[in-house]
Amino acid sequence: MACSSKNTVRYFIGGHVMVVNGGGSVQCVRNIAGFDVFEIDENSTDRHDDIEPWIVNLDERMLSLMPLRKVYEIESDGITSRFGFKGDIPVFEMECEERNIRFGMEYRDGQVFGSSLDDVDAMRFALWFAFNLFGSEVGAYGVHTSCLVYEGQAVMFLGESGTGKSTHTRLWYNNFEGASLLNDDSPVVSTESGIAVVFGSPWSGKTPCYKTQSYPLKAVVRLAQAPENKMRRLNPLESITALFPSFPPAFAKVDELNGKMLDSVSEILMQVPVYKLDCLPDVEAAELSRKTIFGK
C-alpha cells in the first residue's frame, strides 16, 4: 500500500466499507466522536476486503468550477448546506463564515472527492452525506429516527425534531427490561439483503450511542405530541407519507434519487407495519407502543 495509515482511515458502517483518504482532513475525521468505534484497523484480519469500498478523497484541489444547480438547501447550527449538480455530477457544499467553513464535494466515477475541512461537526455531516450518496446506489440510507432494540428487533420512532422521539425511546429503555437504544438520530437502514435491517451508526445526534450492531426492523412508529395516548396502524398510503420524510430530504427533489428512496420505502412497507402514536411523554405511552408492537 502506498498510503500510510495516517492519511487513510477505514470504517465499517451499515454493512459497507467507507475509506477516507487525504492529508489534514483525515485527522479531522479521526476527531469525530463515535467514528473510532466503526474504524477497521488497516492490519486487522477483519478488513472486509470482500466488500467494494466506498472511497472519499479529501483535501482535493481538482474540483469542478461550474456553477451549482441547487436543488436543496438547509441551515443548521449556522452552517448552510446545499445539494445540487454541476453538469450531471452530484455536488454537496457547506458554508459558514463564522466558523471559516467552505467545503465542497462531488460524486463522480464511483468516488467522492472533497476539499479540505477542519470543523468536526461539519465533517460529521459531510460524511453522512457522502454515505448517503453511495448508499442511494444500493438501498442503504441514514434515516432520521430514534431507534430501539427490543427482543432482538429494531423499532424506529420517527418525527420532526422536537417531537419527543428521544424522550419516548428513553421511556422504553429506562422502564423495560431488555430494551436498549441503537441510535438516537440517524442509523443506517438497508434493504440490500432482501429484508429491512437497521444498523447502528456514528451519527447519533445529541446522544452518544455508537453501536456497530444491526437488527431486523420490526416496526416503524411516527410520533406526535397529544393530550392523550393513542396508537393506530396506518394504511399503505399513510405509511408512505409517514416514513418517506425521514429519508435524506436532499434527495427527494431529484427524480432518480427520489425513485430509489421510494423503492426502499416500498420494500420496508411490504415487510413491517407503520403506526401513528399520539402521545404524552409518559411511561403509559411506552407501554401502549410496546403492547401494540410486541403484543405485551
Binding site: 399503505p236 408512505i240 418517506f244 427527494a252 425513485g259 421510494l262 420505502v265
Partner: peptide, 17 residues
C-alpha cells in the same frame, strides 16, 4: 409528462414538490 407514477407498497403514487 415529467410526473412519474410509481408503485410504492402497492399504492400508485405521484410525488409532487
Amino acid at each position: 409528462e415529467k410526473i412519474k407514477i410509481r408503485n410504492v407498497a402497492g399504492e400508485q403514487i405521484a410525488m409532487l414538490h
